[in-house]
Measured scan of single mutants.
Amino acid sequence: MQIFVKTLTGKTITLEVEPSDTIENVKAKIQDKEGIPPDQQRLIFAGKQLEDGRTLSDYNIQKESTSHLVLR
Rank of each mutant, 00 (worst) to 15 (best):
M1Q: 03
Q2W: 10
Q2C: 10
Q2M: 12
I3R: 00
I3N: 01
I3T: 01
I3Y: 02
I3H: 03
F4M: 09
K6G: 05
K6T: 12
K6A: 07
K6H: 15
T7S: 06
L8N: 11
T9S: 12
T9K: 11
G10W: 04
G10M: 03
K11S: 08
K11N: 08
K11A: 08
T12R: 08
T12V: 14
I13P: 00
I13A: 01
I13W: 04
I13G: 01
T14Q: 09
T14N: 06
T14I: 14
L15Y: 01
L15R: 00
E16T: 13
E16Q: 11
E16P: 04
P19N: 05
S20N: 13
S20I: 06
S20L: 09
S20H: 12
D21V: 04
T22M: 06
T22H: 04
T22A: 04
T22W: 04
E24I: 11
E24G: 12
E24K: 12
V26M: 05
V26I: 12
K27P: 00
K27N: 00
A28D: 06
A28W: 11
K29W: 04
K29M: 12
I30T: 01
I30Y: 02
Q31W: 15
Q31K: 10
D32A: 14
D32L: 14
D32I: 13
E34V: 15
G35R: 05
G35N: 07
G35T: 03
G35S: 05
G35E: 03
G35C: 06
I36W: 13
I36A: 03
I36D: 02
P37Y: 05
P37R: 08
P38V: 15
P38S: 13
P38A: 15
P38N: 06
P38G: 07
D39Y: 12
Q41A: 04
Q41F: 14
L43M: 03
L43A: 00
L43F: 03
L43G: 00
I44V: 09
I44S: 11
F45D: 01
A46V: 06
A46S: 09
K48N: 09
L50W: 02
L50G: 02
G53Q: 11
G53I: 07
G53H: 14
R54T: 06
T55D: 03
T55R: 11
T55A: 06
T55F: 06
L56C: 01
S57E: 12
S57P: 02
D58Q: 06
D58V: 03
D58T: 04
Y59S: 02
Y59C: 03
N60G: 15
I61P: 02
I61T: 02
Q62T: 15
Q62C: 11
Q62M: 12
K63P: 15
E64R: 08
E64L: 12
S65G: 09
T66V: 12
T66Q: 09
T66C: 11
S67H: 12
H68D: 09
H68V: 13
L69H: 02
L69T: 02
V70P: 02
L71K: 06
L71E: 07
L71N: 06
L71M: 09
R72G: 11
